[in-house]
Write a protein that binds this DNA or RNA. Sequence first.
DNA 1: CGACTGTTGCTGTCGCGACAGCTATTTGGG
DNA 2: CCCAAATAGCTGTCGCGACAGCAACAGTCG
Lengths: 159, 159
Amino acid sequence: MENLENPGHGMSAVPFALVLGSGSLLNQVGRELRTAVETLLAPFDVTSQQAALLLHAARQEASPNQLAPQLGTDTAGMTRLLDRLEDKGLVRRRRHPDDRRSVVIEVTAAGKAIVPRLAPVFGKATAQLLAGFSEAEVRELTGMLQRMLGNLRGAATGS
Amino acid sequence: MENLENPGHGMSAVPFALVLGSGSLLNQVGRELRTAVETLLAPFDVTSQQAALLLHAARQEASPNQLAPQLGTDTAGMTRLLDRLEDKGLVRRRRHPDDRRSVVIEVTAAGKAIVPRLAPVFGKATAQLLAGFSEAEVRELTGMLQRMLGNLRGAATGS
DNA sequence: CGACTGTTGCTGTCGCGACAGCTATTTGGG
DNA sequence: CCCAAATAGCTGTCGCGACAGCAACAGTCG
């Protein structure tokens, strides 16, 4: 496992397929996955981000600040995501009564109407993505992804 | 493995971690990887895309049309990527002598100067990403990613 | 020759992630 | 009590991926 930390074992040719820019295999799968989800989502006129937010927000009212990390964005991204969802009438912003800095995301009736149809889409996409994978493989894959995440975040402990 | 195709086994709570929007685990790892690469790339004032293009173009002069898929973008994205690289003076556009529609990407002296220092960055990022992974695991991971890619594309036309 | 078709690249528009800077509000210390 | 720091959200800017539409050019066929 350590030879990976040593750049001299065979990674010099075109070894970076896993890592090269956003054309990397990792990013490629991620992007195509998103595309696939959004194709399934097209009838509802929402993107995968918007659908994800709706699913989270419908389950429990929360503040943008709380949802941001779960959606893989920051508060700035949340602001504009909420703008778009408000434009579509799927969500409304309310001020938190006890803390007027905070916003409570409220799913409108129109939003609630489509939420139940959104969840199956993710199930379908998951099924497509993982077709032919055993449960053990999925577990392994998930574990590897989490280890990589840890390496990227915490590996700083070593460097 | 088949229950994955059946949405009724336990995926209703927060099962979509692998798949949910661009906050999905897959996209998260991809994004953080890109961030990590770009942190290492900061001294050179290029993004991971730009570095990837430089590496490809320096190895062999090519047209935007050819590089686009390798960089995970399309010709429109290439146009603007090249605009930015031209602004930085790292690349120049030339018309192909035999086909005046085509553009040949030429890496300038300034570009050639930094290219040799770009490659190690990807090696370093790879090492960080895969710290603690055995070669077998890397192979397995790569295989799974490719299978997923095939699943998403329709597997029919293959790769 | 001139129209037809396909390719190549450019431009516009939208959605999104990252960062920096700003305002309003809350909170805690003096 | 008032002021400073922290917190929540908004706005601007940049880079990037996807799509649609356009113009220029190449090769083909009538």
